[in-house]
Structures are given as structure tokens and as C-alpha cells.
Design a protein around this nucleic acid. Structure first.
Lengths: 183, 183
DNA sequence: CGATTAGGTTTCAAGTTGCAACTAGAAACT
DNA sequence: AGTTTCTAGTTGCAACTTGAAACCTAATCG
């Protein structure tokens, strides 16, 4: 005890501030949604969103700067510039859809159209969910916050084997988790 | 063709703007996260977040107004007021965690502590995921946007039976979906 | 009682947003 | 070639939002 490195504790304990630095800005999620819907050009965003020109310019620049969109001049018409989602941008989809579903559940009556469907069977997707390490769906009450050193330590003192779990709790590896859940 | 009700189309096609009306504001998600961590009182939020008093006051009022937090005077000390998450507030967890995980994946190195774990086995949760109607995990490339009337219509012309799917694509019912996926 | 604590409101400077007008480069029309 | 139009900006200015610090009021502590 009395270790000096205790002071490291709440310096940057969570990725939320990092995410909000870009996506917390007023129009970022709406631009992302438009992008996902297939809007690529400045004037398209402008009329789709009803945003001011200077703000759109600024937001697009920031999204590009943060690697969420990539900006490339159009091949066939060099006046035009295409803004397209990067992989980092696509990875925001769960967050965006979760927000959207929440808004839909609690907002005024909304007739969603177009509808987000499974590419394979063309049926609407289900809710975005928090999964346990082994793929069970977790509700808010199934969650707990524990200190890093107590991971796996159950209330009765037994320790769950971490063998079949994500070995390092701080690393979020979507692909690996997908493979795990699919098997 | 030429039907008059075509004009209904993109009036309010999506729940995202509704969600952003509250949660798009600068401090909303950070307040939500603190709330989830067990911060309940004005001065606690103040020192936890480093937000200005007037802004905190304003944000808390808005979150209460939107039914995300409830505000009740403390029983034992009537100067104190408790702000606690409502169910509507808890339902923002998937969105918050998705954002957080994204920030963690792409942000500077972050040592998350405390860690969000499964209440039962105390192992860190997996990534927040988009699920298909029958519980498969969907990546960005497994998704498509289709017009409402074409739900279930596959590219080869066959129509998937909607019998085992969410019957109305516009309704997001987390609990029902959890029961489905759990079975 | 007076001091302190909790949860605000007020004031004011600085930053952000949004509208409208202007610019600069590429394409299209005559 | 010259004019017009279209795309993607930038600039200027008014209105709104944010943040730091001071002030206010009721409840509790000593």
C-alpha cells in the first residue's frame, strides 16, 4: 500500500471523453447517418441536413481529421469531392443505431423508412445489445463495475476462469468477439 | 403511382434527431456515465466532471425534464437532492457503452478502471453488437437499407417469412428481443 | 446564534452557431 | 473564347451557448 502509481487512477479511465471529442459535436451523428445512407457530396449533405454551410464545412473537416470520413476528389467531375466513411467510421454504427433505437422507443411516433435490415434475409434488425464475454445478452441490471484487480472475483470468493473470456478487459476486439459469438 | 401520401416519406424517418435533442448536448453523456457509476448529488457531479455550476444545473434540469434522471429531495438531509437514472436513462446504456468502446478502440491508450463486468461471473463484457432479428451478430457489411414495403423481399425475389421475426419493424422492444435471444 | 454546506441563479467575457453574401475553380453552353 | 452555372468552400456579423466567479437562499452543524 501507499504505492506511488496509485495516482494514475482516474487520469483517463474511460474512452467516452475521447469518443465525445468528435461525436459530441452538434451535427456529427447526423452527418454520420447521412453518410451511411449514401450521401457523399457537400451540397447533398447541405440539403439533406439543413445545416449551415460553414458549420458543415467545419464538421466535415473535423470528421476527416479524426479519420471517420475520408475526403477524395471525384474522378469524373473534379469540382466534386466525395466524403466516405472509413472503417473507423463504420465502427460507430452500433453507437449510432443504439441512439436511434432509443430515440425511437421513447420519442414521438416515428415511421422509420428506410428500414435497416439484415442483408441476407431482409428482415429488420433487432436491438443493439450489450453482450457478455460468452455472448449472452445483458440488461442494465446484469452489469457491475469492479476494480480492475477484482475482475473474475465473485461475491462468494470463487474466481471465474478467464480462460474462455476476453483475456484483457481493456481491449475491445469486435472481430474476435464476433467469431466467438458465432461459434 | 402518383399517390398523394408519397409526401409523408421523409418527414420524421428516424429516431436519431429525437435522441440527439437531449443527448447531443455537450455534457449529457458524461453526466449519464457518472450517474451510472453511482454519483447522485450536485456537488459530486461538479467535482467528478469539472463542469461549470450553471451548466450542470441546466443539464440536470434538462435530463430530468426529458425523464432520463429523476430528481428527489434526500430524506435525511433536505438540502440535498438526489439525481437518479430512470429506466429510460438506463436504456441509454447500450449507446453509451458502444461510444465508450469505440473511443477505447481508437483513442489513446486507456486503462479502463473500474471495468464493466457481468454481474454473475464478474468477467468483462464483450462489445456492444447489432443483432439480427434472430440473434446473429451483424457487422456493418451485413446490413442493408430497404424501403419499408420491401421488408423481407430478397434480391432473388423470394420473401422471407416474417413469422419468427419482429413483426413490426418500427417498434424496438428490447425486453421481447432479449427473451427471444435467450431462448 | 454564526458558520458551513447544498444547490442553485446572476453576471459577464469568450467561444460557437447560423444566415447571407462573397470567392475560386471546374464544367457546360453559345 | 466568353459567359453562365455548379461545387465547395470562406468571410462577416448577429444571436445564442459556455464557462468562471460571485452572489443568493434554505437547511444543518457546532
Amino acid at each position: 500500500m501507499g504505492d506511488i502509481r496509485e495516482s494514475l487512477r482516474d487520469l483517463i479511465e474511460c474512452g467516452l471523453p475521447q469518443a465525445l471529442e468528435v461525436m459530441g459535436e452538434r451535427w456529427s451523428f447526423m452527418i454520420l447517418r447521412a453518410s451511411f445512407k449514401g450521401v457523399y457530396h457537400f451540397e447533398e449533405f447541405l440539403s439533406e441536413l439543413g445545416i449551415a454551410r460553414n458549420i458543415l464545412s467545419n464538421r466535415l473537416a473535423k470528421l476527416v481529421e479524426h479519420g471517420i470520413l475520408k475526403r477524395e476528389p471525384c474522378a469524373d467531375d473534379r469540382r466534386k469531392i466525395e466524403y466516405r466513411l472509413t472503417e473507423k467510421g463504420f465502427d460507430l454504427l452500433p453507437a449510432m443505431i443504439a441512439l436511434r433505437q432509443w430515440g425511437q422507443k421513447y420519442g414521438a411516433e416515428v415511421v422509420e423508412d428506410p428500414v435497416l435490415v439484415d442483408e441476407i434475409d431482409r428482415l429488420p434488425i433487432g436491438p443493439v445489445s450489450i453482450l457478455s464475454h460468452d455472448g449472452r445478452i445483458m440488461g442494465p441490471k446484469d452489469l457491475a463495475l469492479v476494480k480492475r484487480e477484482n475482475i473474475g472475483l465473485r461475491t462468494d470468493g470463487t474466481r471465474a476462469s478467464a480462460g474462455d473470456a476476453i483475456s484483457r478487459g481493456d481491449v475491445v476486439d469486435l472481430e474476435a468477439a464476433k467469431r466467438r459469438a458465432a461459434s
